[in-house]
Amino acid sequence: MTRIFFTATAAAAAVWISGAAAALSDSDCDCYRTSANDVFTDYTLSDFRRVGSPKAVPELQSTLPDSAFRSTPDADTGVLQDGFISGPKWNQSWTIQEWGRPKANDTLYPMSNSFSNVFIDRNKDGDKKAKTKLVLRTRRFEGFQSAAEVEHQQKNLLYASARFRARVIGDAGAVAGLFYYQNGNNESDIEILTRDDPTIIRYSNQPTVDDDGNQIPDSSTIFNLATKQRRDDIEDKKKRSFLSPRADGDLAWTEWHTHRIDWIAGKSSWYVDGEFELEKTYGVPTVPSYIVLNMWGDGGVWSGEMEVNAEARLEIEWIEMAFNTSGPVEGVPDEEDNARRKSKRADACTKMCTLGDGAPHQSGAVGLRRTDSRLAIAVAIGAMVLFVAF
């Protein structure tokens, strides 16, 4: 199902639910509206703030795995952390990647994704109510870089609004990615390069280069959190140079922020902490896609070179997404989730919930449909007209 265009011909009354009793049942919301007035028929929350006591962080092997460039049943690409990451709640919504990439002409060393680089850790300096967090780690070893990537199980997103409560910390030479993906021509990115000044975020729709290797205008934008300045990546003469990080307090990607990317027909939009920052009409994905998170480096001109034994982390408290699909809602649900994981029709939007920009109600689980004081049940007074684009 594609974007729903919603028009109310009369006023609508909103009943706001506050406090701990604000978790609504599935029957309370048929559809979800964003601050941009885009409407989606499904909702999911991956909440890593209270998922039990973290188990020991897996050790990384310091040599390139024999199976780094192939996926086999006996792959030796790390071990899963005990507890939450090895359990059903995580696996209902996410899969950890184990593929690798050999050294290329434009990179200095190979890269290998490892199970061991995705884990739950204690959250000592995030939200006061967030006791734990998800971590994606990358570390440089002599001869290769160990990396992390996870994919969401919902593979048929066709338009979505996704929010990531995240920060990036660590050494230069890594790339943190939060993006919608299907292939090289259908991808919308939030990327943070740890070689950049910590105020710089890069927003792009792929492809960013043409067949001759030339940068495509308006495909990639460099955005400054502190000044709100934007410039086309094609104009950035320092793109391949290392920039010395400086302390920018709450305006840096080293601090916790809510990064948001909206994908609708013909437009991608980026937000930080609820504030609109940028939109693009170039290269907007047109086919069903899915969410990918990664943390990697390969010594190439994009990531830069990381020093041996250095590392960097992408840390996430929660991921919230309202979305439409090209078919039934999928994933790997347990029996309890089967009832809610179903396709919906746009004309079933009789109870509209408005998705806010604050932290969602804590569920302590992944994939559960939860709402809180930021979601209002909109009760239409008068006729409503729903225009659905297929």
Rank of each mutant, 00 (worst) to 15 (best):
D347K: 09
T2L: 00
A346L: 00
L225K: 03
I381P: 00
S303D: 05
D372A: 11
R140T: 06
R313D: 05
T227H: 02
V292W: 01
R49G: 06
V292N: 06
N117A: 04
Y181M: 05
L45E: 03
Q153D: 11
D372S: 12
V287S: 15
D232M: 09
T199F: 01
L278P: 12
P102D: 06
V51A: 10
A383T: 14
T132H: 03
I201R: 04
D212A: 15
S27Y: 06
A56M: 03
K129A: 12
V292A: 07
D26Q: 07
A346R: 05
A176K: 03
D106R: 14
P102K: 04
N123Y: 06
W94P: 13
L368W: 00
A339C: 13
A365W: 01
T132M: 06
D127N: 10
K237V: 14
A75P: 02
G297D: 01
E279T: 15
Q81K: 02
R33I: 10
V388R: 03
S326K: 09
R231C: 12
A68S: 10
N224I: 02
G331P: 12
N324G: 04
S220G: 11
D236I: 02
T258N: 07
R50L: 06
T7N: 13
C29Q: 06
H152R: 14
T107Y: 11
R101G: 12
N156Q: 15
S220D: 03
D38T: 07
V308F: 06
L134P: 01
H257M: 14
Y290G: 08
G331I: 09
T286D: 12
I4N: 03
Y43M: 15
R49D: 04
A252S: 06
E142D: 15
D218I: 00
S18A: 13
Q61C: 01
V79I: 09
T350M: 12
H152T: 10
A11N: 14
V301N: 15
D236P: 00
Q97E: 13
E142L: 09
K280A: 13
V388L: 06
E191V: 05
D232C: 04
T107S: 15
N123S: 15
F141C: 10
G364Q: 01
F6K: 14
S18Q: 11
L158Y: 08
S289K: 13
R101P: 00
A36I: 07
P58E: 03
L375H: 07
G331H: 11
N224Y: 04
Y32C: 00
Y159T: 13
R370D: 09
T286H: 02
E307W: 01
R165F: 02
T354Q: 07
A104H: 11
S53Q: 15
W90R: 12
F69L: 08
E98D: 05
E275C: 02
T95R: 13
I17Y: 10
F5T: 12
P207T: 06
N324D: 03
N123H: 08
A162N: 02
T254M: 06
D42M: 02
N309H: 00
S219I: 04
E335P: 14
S373F: 07
F223P: 02
F390I: 07
Q61S: 10
Y282E: 10
E305H: 09
W90S: 11
A312I: 03
S220K: 08
P245V: 08
E336F: 11
K351G: 14
T227C: 03
K237M: 14
F48C: 12
D347S: 09
F390N: 15
S62C: 01
E330Q: 13
